[in-house]
Design a binder for these strands. Structure first.
Lengths: 181, 181
DNA sequence: GTCTATACTGAGATAGAC
DNA sequence: GTCTATCTCAGTATAGAC
């Protein structure tokens, strides 16, 4: 049912836009009542981000699984690299999804919140490895910046793997931070 | 009127919490009707972030005003340092504000969106100086991470200035990014 | 599954400033 | 008279309580 509601929501969001779609319509297209919609999703926005919890869990699991003795950034970069297969699979799904999200302020706001939650989760995963709190937060935020940069570059140029783009992002970061303070 | 509505909203948010405060109550306390509230604020959340546009403008103005020939990170750090007086003034106002925001999911979500908007504004300000798009984005995101780190450290330890904490944040970043990729 | 509170929108009327 | 701010009224949709 979750999947049917999601499919119905995406179809309607794409057809008429998020704002012009009511939760009643989504439910009707899925063949259930409006109330059922809210049993599966806490609010109308959340439908657009289903699966983000699993994605986040993959990250934090990879961080927890990294060998001991690595620095925080090394741990994050390893985790990022481990996500490449999953990212490649989801690419075809994500691009139209992003188009709708980008065109809808309410969904962009939720996406910002999701990104913040992801950063918080990375921070916590690093702290669980013994990294001091503020350093963990700085690492997680910087890591997210690298991740963003690499993913964007990879979307532009898929001829090389995400790993290569991550290396380049790290290079760029080193140059940036080496500049005079 | 804007100020009266804001004051009323903050008083009620602090008294009974954001969720248990209705827009009608805010308006009533300010001596106007509910409809008037929505003439000044697009939604109930936005009252809590009044002035953020001006804050953002200060940042981007400082970036635009920086001398030519500096690298993106140098430009950002200069802008950050220029914000210290304003930050010191607002500290007494911001701390209780943050308490309410932190306790309210809806306001935290809006705050994430504001942070994302700030990052986007920094990115654009760097691009206006001729910095390439993805490098500008990476710089802005990394800069925000430094800013966060420094501000948090400064709240914990105000015995030294924000500038000192910024220097330390840059040091930490260098160590992080110097680690093996 | 039903009912209700409340956030938000739109159109038009009123009143005061200039 | 024009402009702008506020109010009045009527309504829809989300979300939560029961």
């Amino acid at each position: 049912m979750r999947g049917r509601l999601q499919a119905a929501a995406w179809a309607l969001y794409a057809e008429r836009g998020y704002d012009r779609t009511t939760t009643a319509e989504i439910a009707a297209r899925a063949g259930v009542t409006e109330r059922t919609f809210f049993r599966y999703f806490p609010d109308k926005r959340e439908v657009a981000f289903d699966g983000s919890a699993e994605f986040m869990a993959s990250f934090t699991d990879a961080i927890a699984a990294a060998p001991a003795g690595l620095g925080p950034m090394e741990v994050l970069l390893r985790a990022f690299r481990s996500m490449e297969p999953m990212l490649a699979d989801n690419r075809a799904v994500n691009e139209p999804r992003q188009a709708v999200i980008g065109a809808t302020p309410a969904l962009r706001e939720r996406q910002s919140a999701k990104a913040a939650a992801m950063t918080a989760a990375l921070t916590q995963a690093l702290r669980d490895r013994g990294v001091e709190a503020k350093l963990a937060a700085l690492s997680a935020q910087t890591g997210m910046a690298l991740w963003d940069h690499a993913v964007r570059a990879w979307y532009e140029d898929p001829s090389v793997g995400l790993g290569v783009h991550l290396d380049r992002a790290v290079q760029a970061l080193r140059q940036l931070s080496a500049g005079d303070a």
